[in-house]
Design a protein around this nucleic acid. Structure first.
Length: 803
RNA sequence: GCUGGUGUGGCGGAAUAGGCAGACGCAAAGGACUUAAAAUCCUUCGGGAGUUAAUCCCGUGCCGGUUCAAGUCCGGCCACCAGCACCA
């Protein structure tokens, strides 16, 4: 009998050996085929590692370990996305420098990850808060600034009243702050902006060139929100100005019965004198501006608005005079801030027209009911009516014809719009990368010379944000007051810092060459390692981190700083791990599982195995303590195979097929996120060994190798105890022979009219006629009618169709 | 509302490409071992009828269809999850 499996001894022993042997150090040998596996680096929070972290880390650790065994030079790195609000808030509360807080948290995380036996190359660890790292974050910002993609703008921003900080649109969820849940209001502030909109088309088209799971592509497409249509100039009656609108349905131009402007539209102020009901308009405008974005969408059920008396528009295609309204269902920030309303064929316009009794004119026929009863928006089936030269055309034909008409007459042109907005890049906070810009009275905004990077965060007394919305850095007058790099005159430093998304927008580049002081990474390293071959991360980062980092990467590609336009060749997403009650884990729900407890009690290998076995990788799964025990039991059974190990080297004849089938299944499943079925196949295999009461050396070696990426410690220990020689992490991934994955005799089903009535064994090579003859024999007592058809699916079944 | 996804035993979940539904695991029940318990090992385990057997019927959210054959394909619904949401 072999000694009992002691996970604590085994795991600490091998973690030490791997460290000493630098087992997972990435090679600098660029002649070997490379594989770059990447998981999102964590924010080192004060809570320590969450039980959700190991799921993606283990999944890609499996891939990385398998690739090493297949001879690849593998880069599987880890680091820290360490700037951010929770650290700063903790620092404020406890009067500890955020730097110290970060250090402590990183140490804790690192210890926890180490205890899980991940094959990260810790020599390439990066930390976004390290000045040697953020020097290059600032460098990229300067490049963006010089390219005209970073600009300062007076912007109505999303202001979190609790964090006292401006948020990007992406960080506002259901009208509240994504991080703290605090109320978000609109506030006008001068902010640094990044022109991600310049890359909208590229970011959209690039999606066709990469292997991302469908739902990620769809989310990104929705977020970018490309729409095509036309801009059309309406005449503002009696004025010089044209009233330009954007529409995706220029084909309905003859159905316009009124116009709507956003309450913030500049024409309102400009034509103040002409507006007869000015007081009513002002009242409406004020009401609208008081609403937060949240209320504006929440209260969307009822349309509101005010007609501008004294102003009217003229439809350029039929010279009809139509009224102009203002309403907050039209947004100043999209299109031109004004629309043409076609109530018959647009849902919102229809509602508005119904409420305010505006006329509804049908211009696309084909609605099952009268357009006064229900709106008709179908673009596939309709035919144009009441539309002069467009009559009789389909919607698609009419669009084309009207756009060329408008273009020829000079009253309109085709136009593409995006929902994507520029990225609000400043935060009024301390714990972030300083923005390397100074403001000079004479020269305006001046970038620091590259030689002055990194611009380090100064030591401050207090990290409290100020009530007037200034960063805590603003109080550091010694630091703020500086000299203009351009004219040498007095100037002030920018006191806002960068958002957390900055450091994570390029970290994967730094891993390829983390100590480089001359560049963000060497050309050679980037050319060898990029793009990332497989990147896994959370669904919640689809429209934030993933989009931002693709934007920066495309920009760096244009700057010739990186060798490829897309950073990630493949992107997958893992599902969440929920509490045992099926709800999201949280302290308040009392369903939190601490990974340290599981590692202590059952071991890292058990936790790794369990998290891979828990269910489909991309779906969320509920935690189960019993399931953990089941996985521990499996590993114990693997351990105890030592008791029935024989001296034979190869596979025993009766298990040869099973061995090849298992190698094939595990090899394929590890590539396609099907870790649960890979483990199931290995469980089934050891059940076979136990059924036979023996396992050969060859069989055991193969099993251990297949299992090693999932449970690296126990397999390494058994490998050593059984004297298989060397280290398992240095062995070669087992190969399978396709021809040997099929049994010589196969059990097939014999069906009558599609229902299985019996099974029988056939030889692999057996002729169809012979199989069918024997099948009829097997079920002869049930063949009570005429067999009108015989179907043979090789290796599967015979179906006899009886009348 | 739009988009994407999911729906299979008591539970987590399997099932290339239309081909024996329920792999693997958990829980449960019975048994062996033990003074006992835990652990371990063996057996049973979708529902119903039938003697516990042979055997038969039903069964993958619902209704219909295609097919020799449907969890899988088609048409029409329902529920849940996620993302987006007055974007003209």
């Amino acid at each position: 009998m072999t000694v009992p499996y002691n996970h604590r001894e085994v795991e600490t022993k091998w973690q030490k050996i791997w460290d000493e042997e630098k087992a997972f150090k990435t090679s600098e040998d660029h002649s070997r085929p490379k594989y770059y596996a990447l998981v999102e680096f964590p924010y080192p929070s004060g809570q320590g590692l969450h039980v959700g972290h190991p799921r993606p880390y283990t999944a890609l650790d499996i891939v990385a370990r398998k690739r090493r065994m297949q001879g690849y030079n593998v880069l599987y790195p880890m680091g820290w996305d360490a700037f951010g609000l929770p650290t700063e808030n903790y620092a404020i509360k406890n009067h500890i420098h955020p730097k110290i807080v970060t250090q402590n948290n990183v140490a804790r995380f690192k210890g926890q990850l180490h205890a899980l036996g991940y094959s990260f190359d810790w020599d390439r660890e990066v930390n976004t808060t390290d000045p040697k790292y953020y020097k290059w974050t600032q460098w990229i910002f300067l490049k963006l600034f010089k390219a005209g993609l970073a600009y300062k703008a007076e912007m109505p921003i999303n202001w979190c009243t609790s964090c006292k900080v401006g948020l990007a649109n992406e960080e506002v969820v259901n009208g509240v702050c994504e991080r703290c849940g605090g109320e978000v209001v609109r506030k006008v502030k001068s902010q640094w902006m990044l022109k991600i909109t310049d890359y909208a088309d590229q970011l959209l088209e690039g999606l066709d060139t990469v292997d991302y799971v469908e739902r990620i592509k769809v989310s990104q497409k929705n977020w970018i929100g490309k729409s095509t249509g036309a801009e059309v100039d309406f005449i503002l009656k009696g004025k010089e100005d044209k009233m330009t609108i954007y529409t995706t349905r220029p084909d309905t131009l003859f159905g316009v019965t009124y116009m709507v402007m956003s309450p913030e539209h500049p024409f309102i102020e400009k034509y103040k004198e002409d507006i007869e009901n000015w007081e009513e308009v002002v009242a409406y405008r004020e009401m609208a501006s008081r609403k937060s974005d949240f209320e504006r969408t929440e209260l969307a059920k009822e349309k509101t608005g005010v007609m501008l008396k004294g102003l009217s528009a003229v439809n350029p295609v039929n010279n009809k005079e139509i009224p102009i309204w203002i309403s907050d269902y039209v947004l100043m920030s999209y299109g031109t801030g004004a629309i043409m309303a076609v109530p018959a064929h647009d849902e919102r316009d229809w509602e508005f027209a119904k409420k305010f009794n505006m006329p509804i004119i049908e211009v696309v026929a084909g609605s099952p009911v009268d357009v006064n009863e229900a709106v008709f928006t179908d673009v596939e089936t309709g035919t144009l009516v009441n539309s002069d030269f467009l009559n009789g055309l389909s919607v698609a034909e009419a669009k084309e014809k009207i756009i060329s008409f408008l273009t020829e007459k000079g009253i309109g042109h085709p136009k593409t719009n995006f929902k994507l907005r520029d990225w609000v890049f400043s935060r009024q906070r301390y714990w972030g990368e300083p923005i390397p810009i100074v403001k000079c009275e004479k020269c305006g905004y001046v970038p620091l010379p590259e030689s002055e990077l990194p611009l380090e965060l100064p030591e401050v007394e207090s990290y409290m944000p100020t009530d007037n919305g200034e960063s805590p850095l603003a109080k550091m007058t010694d630091w703020v007051n500086t000299i203009c790099p351009c004219c040498g005159g007095p100037a002030q430093r920018e006191t806002d810092t960068m958002p957390q998304w900055a450091g994570s927008s390029w970290y994967f580049l730094r891993y390829t060459d983390p100590l480089n002081e001359q560049a963000l990474a060497s050309k050679e390293a980037l050319e060898y390692w990029m793009p990332v071959d497989w990147y896994n991360g959370g669904m919640e980062h689809t429209t934030l981190h993933l989009l931002y980092s693709r934007f920066w990467h495309r920009f760096l590609f244009d700057e010739k700083a990186v060798p490829c336009p897309e950073p990630y060749a493949k992107r997958t997403s893992h599902g969440m791990i929920l509490g045992s009650n099926g709800e999201k884990m949280s302290k308040s729900r009392g369903n939190v599982v601490n990974p340290d407890d599981i590692v202590r009690e059952y071991g890292a290998d058990t936790l790794r195995t369990y998290e891979m076995f828990i269910g489909a990788f991309d779906l969320s799964a509920a935690w189960s303590d019993e399931g953990v025990k089941g996985c521990r039991r499996f590993l114990e059974r693997v351990w105890k195979l030592q008791d029935i190990l024989t001296e034979e080297e190869g596979y025993s004849r009766d298990l040869e097929v099973k061995m090849h089938q298992t190698i094939k299944k595990v090899s394929n499943d590890f590539e396609s996120l099907k870790y649960n079925t890979a483990i199931a196949a290995m469980m089934a295999l050891i059940n076979e060994f136990y059924k036979k009461g023996r396992v050969t050396k060859g069989e055991f070696k193969t099993l251990l190798t297949l299992l090693n990426p999932v449970a690296p410690h126990i397999t390494e220990e058994i490998w050593e105890r059984t004297g298989f020689g060397g280290r398992i992490y240095q062995t070669i991934w087992p190969l399978f022979d396709e021809a040997k994955t099929v049994e010589d005799t196969i059990e097939i089903a014999v069906q009558i009219n599609g229902k299985t009535r019996a099974t029988m064994d056939i030889a692999r090579e057996e002729e169809k006629s012979s199989v069918i003859a024997r099948a009829r024999e097997t079920v002869s007592d049930k063949l009570t009618g005429n067999v009108v058809k015989e179907i043979y699916v090789p290796g599967r079944l015979v179906n006899l169709v009886m009348k």
